[in-house]
Amino acid sequence: ANNNNNLQKAIDLASKAAQEDKAENYEEALRLYQHAVQYFLHVVKYEAQGDKAKQSIRAKCAEYLDRAEKLKEYLKKKEKAPAKPV
């Protein structure tokens, strides 16, 4: 089993999420942030990393989750409001 695959996948997903975020594709960004965190969490829980590496990954997860929550709130509000740009 290649231990680096999941970590690399997580990094790729997070990178894509940031791209979509920047491009204002918030639904896609939200989805990708969630997936990235899932992979990061898997790495932390099931794949051997040093303590510092783990904590660094956890901190990243916290940031992505925070951002994802904000996107989710924004999308919820957008859903409720009529789709008319101001």
Binding site: L30, Q34, V37, Q38, L41, V44, K45, Q55, R58, A59, C61, A62, E63, L65, D66, A68, E69, K72
Partner: peptide, 24 residues
């Protein structure tokens, strides 16, 4: 503040927030 929370977050807390995100 948010930064120190991020620095010390636990696996369980990450999981909790991830689940919360997944729920509509």
């Amino acid at each position: 503040p948010a930064k120190s929370k991020a620095a010390t977050i636990s696996d369980a807390e990450i999981e909790r927030q991830l689940k919360a995100l997944g729920m509509d």
